[in-house]
């Protein structure tokens, strides 16, 4: 579990040089395990929950879902469904780094570990709790993950209900692999390079538009810039909500991510990511805001570019 490793390694930051840190992360990312995981996310519409069987080996994580089986890791996304196998591969060059607004504490003295074995890592932001991880002592896998909203309320909770290290084969039954689809680098038109405290790491061509990938090292989201005619793959039917005093957003939650769709005067946007609600608010304020089409402006652009 690479996140766990990242956090474990970061907690050692005082003693290890940065290069070693990245090496450590790569090594422990190869932990093998099978597990059964519960994820609960409390969005504004109530809780969404999912229990899944997970298998990880060689840096690849396999999860079986209602629509098929997904194996994901190292830039690869392999989907096995009734109609065959879909294989997407991305190879970004930008290096991972962690936002300096986070502070990490390992085994904070005032927090009793809720699991019998495991090390607790707490992430705070401006002195407030942002996330808490209980990591398996041997593999560094997060046995429990808690992500908090800015007001200190729990936003997402996950727990490994069964966890068995060793002996996994995430790539089993993946024999007849087709050639991967690659995504070329591309540029968005109106997406800024910084939103909230998140930075745009890289951007790619995507079906129907351009994907800009943002991260702060702990959470991450993508902004897809598409045609104003798009319905966001059905997201335009989701509840119309006001976020940070601005209406015109359509939002849905899954246990692992929030999706937001909105239209601006010129284009439409889909944001997908695991960032907490207060971060989302700050981010949306820096992205193009919802609006109606400006006919004159469009005519001007059409005529003069």
């Amino acid at each position: 579990m690479i996140l766990a490793v990242a956090l474990t390694a970061i907690s050692l930051l005082g003693t290890a040089p940065h290069a070693d840190l990245v090496d450590d992360m790569g090594q422990a990312g190869d932990a093998e395990f099978t597990a059964r995981q519960l994820v609960v996310c409390w969005g504004d519409d109530g809780a969404v929950a999912r229990v899944s069987d997970i298998e990880q080996s060689d840096g690849m994580t396999r999860v079986a879902g209602p629509d098929g089986t997904f194996v994901i890791g190292d830039g690869k996304m392999i989907e096995q469904y009734a109609g065959g196998i879909r294989y997407l591969e991305m190879s970004p060059t930008s290096a991972w780094r962690l936002w300096d607004g986070y502070q990490m504490t390992t085994d904070p003295p005032d927090v009793a570990s809720v699991l019998s074995s495991g090390r607790t890592v707490e992430v705070t932001e401006g002195g407030r709790i942002r996330a808490r991880f209980v990591l398996d002592e041997q593999t560094g896998t997060p046995l429990s993950t808690q992500v908090y909203d800015g007001d200190g309320s729990l936003y997402r909770y996950s727990v490994m209900m069964e966890f068995r290290p060793g002996d996994a084969d995430a790539m089993s039954d993946m024999d007849d692999m087709p050639d991967p689809e690659y995504r070329a680098a591309a540029s968005a038109i109106d997406v800024p390079s910084v939103a909230g405290h998140y930075w745009a790491a890289d951007s790619y061509a995507a079906p129907g538009g351009v994907q800009v990938f943002f991260t702060d090292g702990l959470f991450r989201f993508s902004v897809f810039e598409v045609s104003r005619k798009s319905d966001g793959g059905g997201l335009s039917d989701a509840p119309d909500v006001e976020i940070a005093g601005q209406s015109g957003y359509h939002r849905t939650y899954t246990p692992g991510a929030v999706s937001v769709f909105w239209r601006t005067a010129d284009r439409a946007y889909v944001l997908v990511g695991d960032l907490p609600p207060d971060h989302l608010e700050a981010v949306l304020q820096d992205l193009p805001e919802p609006g109606r089409p400006n006919i004159l402006k469009r005519a001007w652009r059409w005529a003069f570019g």
Partner: peptide, 22 residues
């Protein structure tokens, strides 16, 4: 596509996979 890119990040975790599955 988001999760494929995210999986390169050392911060990648199973919650991201959940986003695809669910």
């Amino acid at each position: 596509q988001h999760v494929a890119r995210a999986s390169v990040d050392p911060g990648f975790n199973v919650l991201q996979v959940q986003a695809v599955v669910d």
